[in-house]
Design a binder for these strands. Structure first.
Length: 272
DNA sequence: ATGGCATATCCTATATGA
């Protein structure tokens, strides 16, 4: 099973990029963020013709998330992150696809910081950490995929110098991400590529794409049930190089689900 | 500190993104 996450930066202007990408890379599950469109504008018919069933949660102008599944219906589990009924922003979807729980998230950006937007980011992150603990311990295989809006370490950015005051690099943001990982989640891309600078976002300014001046902010986290299935992870950089591309490229994992439920081979005891 | 670009909508101006 291949699971991907892609911040499309506007589904209406990016639907052809999305369809081209789906046709070429054929993910079994795709988590989308930044639809920037109301529910009725979501192109579910075009996606169905391309072989994907969709679950989506739109919002006027901003945010908006979706989960696509190839050849099957994603079974909705929840449409909002628990913990704050007054939160109206469309940033979370959770579904079951072929026995795997897939969470699609769009964590708040948090700029400018300090300020109310950064406070909202951290509050959202705390709610997410709490919910993730339950998912981790659920006993089901779980993948939490999306735009986390966190650059985990200085190794995950071309150069932190001009971003030091940005919400994506703040110690508070990074501490939340580390606390999440401490629950046991595996950061798929980093675990398979520990020594490689890998980016998923290049802003539209200053020829950042042309200079490969990127950030790694889109992440796919696997719990203890699913992590043993991880065989490959990467970024579809070619998508970012297209005309009028989103500022993000899709990131993905390939999972061998035949390894589900099998305990890892017992460690051989060292001869005394 | 600002801006560079791109998206959206109450669209030629403004809010948001990261």
């Amino acid at each position: 099973m291949k699971i991907a996450t892609f911040n499309v930066n506007g589904i209406k202007t990016r639907v052809h990029h999305l369809l081209d990408w789906l046709a070429r890379e054929q993910p079994d599950v795709a988590c989308l963020q930044e639809l920037k469109a109301l529910d009725e504008a979501f192109p579910h018919e075009a996606l169905r013709e391309a072989g994907y069933e969709s679950l989506w949660k739109g919002q006027r102008s901003w945010n908006g998330v979706a989960i696509l599944a190839r050849g099957m219906e994603p079974v909705e589990i929840r449409r909002e992150l628990p913990g704050d009924p007054s939160d109206e922003q469309s940033r979370y979807l959770e579904a079951a696809v072929d026995g795997v729980i897939v969470a699609c998230l769009y964590l708040p950006n948090g700029n400018p910081q300090p300020g109310p937007k950064f406070d909202y980011k951290l509050a959202w992150f705390e709610r997410f950490i709490k919910h993730a603990a339950g998912l981790f311990a659920s006993g089901h295989p779980v993948a939490m995929c999306g735009d986390y809006n966190v650059v985990p370490t200085d190794f995950d950015i071309y150069n932190p110098r001009s971003w030091l005051k940005d919400a994506l690099l703040q110690p508070e943001s990074r501490e939340c991400y580390q606390r999440l990982l401490k629950q046991g989640w595996v950061d798929s891309i980093r675990s398979l590529h520990p020594d490689e600078a890998i980016f998923t976002f290049w802003d539209y300014f200053r020829k950042h794409w042309e200079r490969d001046a990127g950030l790694r902010i889109d992440h796919l986290l696997l719990n203890a049930q699913l992590a043993p299935c991880l065989v490959e992870a990467g970024v579809d950089r070619w998508v970012r190089g297209q005309e009028k591309a989103s500022d993000h490229a899709p990131a993905w994992v390939r999972l061998d689900l035949s390894k589900l439920g099998k305990k890892p081979a017992a460690k051989r005891k060292k001869a005394a």
